[in-house]
């Protein structure tokens, strides 16, 4: 009658066995569910860890040969930062309670979590506004960066004439020009913020892609010349694919920067009402000394930033996966 229970406990027993170092006889066999497919840096890290277990003829295991298995989660590289995180949160909470710091100075993590849940109704819609600004600015930066870099590589003179101005655009601190842009586009705050975020996000894509388009293998360029390829053939079949890793690198930088640009623009604009972004919520909370709410909003912005980075890394891996060194898994 305990059979079902044993079925349930058996994997747990074996897993614990592997944790306490009885690995040889106790390989980890988690039940049939595989982990969701991870992408980007995390996946790379997890997959590149060859386990002895994989080479062993593990008798009687129902484990599928392919896919991630759970043991990789439980290596030190993954556990250590998680433990640090938990210890930090616990220490924070304890410190706040022991010292009795008022929560308008430093709220404990539990209060922050409660506030996040309580104010979800106002914070999340604001986050969506920020997402809109970020995404529109990022797409604009991607398209314009790509097009301008293509124009640059058509002629050395165009590049030499215009590149310094792109640099100037980049070096102007966004905080100092944001008010100007907001004044110019005072009828359309959304557009003003998109422009601010675009200015920040544009340059990395431009400079990376220009570098990439110019770094096509010179032998291949000669080959294209020998076979009388025209300008567009060279661009489409050689320069653009060569630039792809650089372009992807630019995207990853610009993704984060467009969020920063959006947040800065919101701060400067200080726009409330129906279309208030998450940065405005942070600003308002600070005015009202609602520090737990500030923390909650901060968590949302950070989460958004991480989400952007992870999705762009995944995109990069997907596009470059088959051929580029950065994305190729090596077996040595």
């Amino acid at each position: 009658m305990f059979d079902p229970l044993i079925h349930l406990l058996d994997p747990l027993r074996r897993w614990l066995g592997s944790l306490v170092g009885l690995g040889e006889g106790w390989p980890l066999h988690w039940p049939d569910w595989a982990l969701p497919k991870l992408t980007g840096a995390v996946e790379e890290k997890l997959r590149s860890q060859p386990t002895d277990e994989a080479d062993m003829p593990s008798a009687g295991s129902g484990r599928p040969a392919k896919g991630l298995d759970l043991s990789r989660w439980f290596n030190l590289e993954v556990i250590a930062p998680v433990i640090v995180g938990i210890l930090f949160l616990v220490g924070w909470e304890v410190a706040v309670r022991v010292t009795g710091v008022p929560h308008y100075l430093l709220p404990g993590p539990i209060l922050v979590a409660q506030t996040l849940v309580r104010d979800w109704g106002t914070l999340f819609p604001s986050l969506l506004i920020t997402v809109q600004i970020t995404v529109v600015a990022f797409l604009a930066a991607t398209v314009s960066g790509l097009l301008v870099s293509i124009v640059f590589t058509q002629s050395k003179w165009i590049e030499r004439s215009f590149f310094p101005y792109a640099v100037i655009l980049q070096t102007m601190p966004i905080v100092s020009i944001a008010p100007l842009i907001i004044i110019w586009l005072r009828n359309n705050t959304f557009a003003a913020m998109v422009v601010c975020a675009w200015i920040v996000a544009f340059f990395p894509i431009l400079s990376n892609t220009t570098l990439g388009l110019n770094s096509a293998d010179h032998n291949l360029l000669n080959l294209f010349q020998l076979y009388k390829a025209n300008r567009w053939q060279t661009l489409i079949y050689l320069r653009l694919p060569s630039a792809m890793p650089y372009f992807m690198g630019g995207l990853r930088i610009s993704g984060g920067l467009s969020l920063i640009g959006a947040v800065v623009a919101e701060f400067v604009a200080g726009t409330g009402g129906q279309r208030a972004g998450i940065a405005y919520q942070i600003l308002i909370s600070s005015f009202n000394l609602q520090v737990p709410r500030m923390f909650a909003a901060l968590i949302l912005v950070t989460g958004l930033g991480i989400l952007i980075f992870v999705s762009l890394s995944a995109l990069s891996d997907r596009v470059l996966g088959k051929w580029h060194e950065s994305a190729v898994r090596r077996e040595n």
């Binding site: 293998d217 032998n219 291949l220 000669n222 080959l223 076979y227 079949y237 050689l238 792809m244 051929w323």
Partner: peptide, 28 residues
Amino acid sequence: KLAFVFQEPALMPWATVMDNVRLPLKLA
């Protein structure tokens, strides 16, 4: 009709063997 072989293979890393070899014909 000329053909050139470089010291390095000078292949396009993003393309399969098939696509690499097809290149001169595609350009033509």
